[in-house]
Simulated assay, not measured.
Amino acid sequence: MLVHLNGFRREPTSPVQEIHQALHAVGTDPAPHLLGYTAVARVNPFQALLYRGFGPSGVAVAPVLNSFDFDVLPSFHRLSASQTIHFHWINWVIGVATDAEQARTKVRGFLGRVDKFRDAGGKVVWTAHNVYPHDATFIDEELELQQGLADRADAVHLMAASTTEAMDGLLSVDPDRVVIAPHPSYVGAYEDYVSRQEARAALGIDADETVFVLFGALKAYKGLHALLDGFQELCRRDDGRAYRLLVAGHPDEDPDVQRFVDRCIVDPNVLIEPHRIPGAKAQYYLRCADAGLVTYTRSLNSGAALLYLSFGLPVLATDTPVFREALPAAHVQYVGNPADAATTEMADALASIGDQGRGTSRSDVLDSIAHLHSSRVSSGFRQDLGRLLGW
């Protein structure tokens, strides 16, 4: 029999097949608790890391590849002690709406389905990943959706307590239903065996260059042009140093992002690979760098920041309450929002984090995020979630 990886490709039997397999993988005596999750992310190992401690604790975790199929979970009440849907990113609810009225109709239809799910005995968890979806067109309707889901959720997962401050005026959450579990680090989640020298040789970067890396999907909210302006200002300074900006990630179709890619291509101090980067290749971009960049104009949590830290890199980040709480102070420097910061301020911040990166011990950075190892985060999340869900 050929291997078939359940949950990686939607089949006509999804999600029933994936749920059955998840339950049997944990064992059905005694009946486990059932947790379905959606939307499913496979490129980013975040969900696998977050749930890694659930199975050994008697919780069967199943992907729901077609997000609208979440309402099948209560039908497994004979095989499971409880049935919970965990919503992550919810941009699929409104999707490509033609106007605000259609967006509102989609929101209310979805919330009605959530109500029916709860009436059937299902429980609901939602993780607040972003202020609102990065590519949102109908922001008011997205906020209505988030608030409606938060109001119905048995547990709302925040990755930092300061999320409530960051979302003030945009989202109200009952504190009795909040679960705080930080974003886990990516230590051990990516291949990591090439040396700094081998990575630099592969990319044609000299030993004396100070290298900044911007890794991940290229989107306008990441302050791309302000970052590039600051980097180019730094390169114009006659300080006797060589600088390199390394950009790796898939650009969206926003004209502003496309213009950023074009600017990078013609800049001799910038190396860009404007494509999705396979996990096995990520180590080359991260190992050759001195510092990682999350200088975004809008952000709530940042997997990229944890990825940089997991490879021993200090981080330059936009100054936000969530970043201040979630990231280790000794290895993160802050800059004003790129939408407002002067080019010279960005250049100064890059120079400073570059100097820190050249002198930073990678082991010290890893020690500073030991408490964010996925095994510890997952175990704590499982326990705290269980108290609210009756596991």
Score class of each variant (00 low, 15 high):
F70G: 06
P63I: 11
R78S: 13
Q47T: 14
G53W: 00
N44H: 13
V61H: 04
L50M: 14
N66P: 00
V64S: 05
L65M: 13
F76I: 08
P45I: 14
H77T: 10
N44S: 15
N44P: 13
L65S: 08
S57I: 01
D71Y: 02
N66W: 12
H77R: 14
V61T: 13
Y51T: 10
P63V: 10
R52F: 00
P45H: 11
N66I: 00
Y51V: 02
L50K: 03
R52H: 09
G58H: 11
F70I: 09
P45L: 12
F54V: 09
R78Y: 00
V72C: 10
S75R: 10
F76C: 05
G53K: 02
V64F: 04
F46P: 03
L73W: 06
N44F: 11
S75K: 03
V64A: 03
P74V: 08
R52T: 03
N66M: 07
Y51A: 01
A62G: 09
L73P: 03
R52Q: 15
N44C: 14
N66L: 11
G55V: 07
P56C: 12
R78N: 11
L65Y: 04
N66V: 04
R78D: 15
F46T: 03
L50A: 08
P56M: 10
F54T: 01
G55L: 06
V64N: 04
L49G: 09
V72I: 14
V59W: 03
P45G: 11
S57D: 07
L50R: 02
R52D: 14
P45E: 14
V59K: 01
P56Q: 14
P74Y: 07
A48N: 15
V61A: 07
F54R: 05
V59Q: 01
D69G: 02
D69F: 07
Y51K: 01
D69W: 00
F46A: 03
G53S: 09
D71R: 02
F68Q: 08
V72A: 10
P63Y: 10
S75W: 05
Y51R: 01
G53D: 05
F76D: 05
F54A: 06
P63N: 13
A60Y: 01
G53P: 01
G58V: 10
N44Q: 12
S67G: 00
A60L: 10
A60G: 04
F68W: 03
V61K: 06
A60E: 05
N66R: 11
L65I: 12
